[in-house]
């Protein structure tokens, strides 16, 4: 799983996929989650799970995610979330 040192969008997406597999999809093959996997509004993560993911990203990348930033545009898929985290980390 990524330690947050690689801040490319691809690396962040890979780290998010690994975290999802480890925490919400125990036993599933790596291909079970992709960059297009739906997050907010999807069937994989509940509201508690979304918060856990936010906390994980904050701790891993040293960013702060405000509640109003959790929108379908940025938290809709693994890919959009990775882009959001990359922008937040770059603007620190």
């Amino acid at each position: 799983m990524g330690d947050g040192s690689d801040r490319s969008a691809a690396a962040i997406a890979a780290a998010i996929r690994a975290w999802l597999l480890n925490n919400f999809m125990n036993g599933s093959p790596p291909g079970a989650v992709s960059d297009a996997t739906r997050l907010l509004g999807g069937d994989l993560l509940d509201s508690i799970g979304m918060l856990e993911l936010s906390v994980h990203l904050e701790e891993t990348y040293g960013i702060a995610i405000a509640a109003e930033e959790v929108t379908p545009g940025d938290f809709g898929t693994v890919e959009s979330l990775a882009g959001f985290v990359q922008r937040k980390a770059a603007s620190r």
């Binding site: 919400f24 069937d43 993560l45 509940d46 509201s47 508690i48 799970g49």
Partner: peptide, 11 residues
Amino acid sequence: NTPSRASHSRL
């Protein structure tokens, strides 16, 4: 409602 089931399980 799989998200709700997941929420309750995690609680």
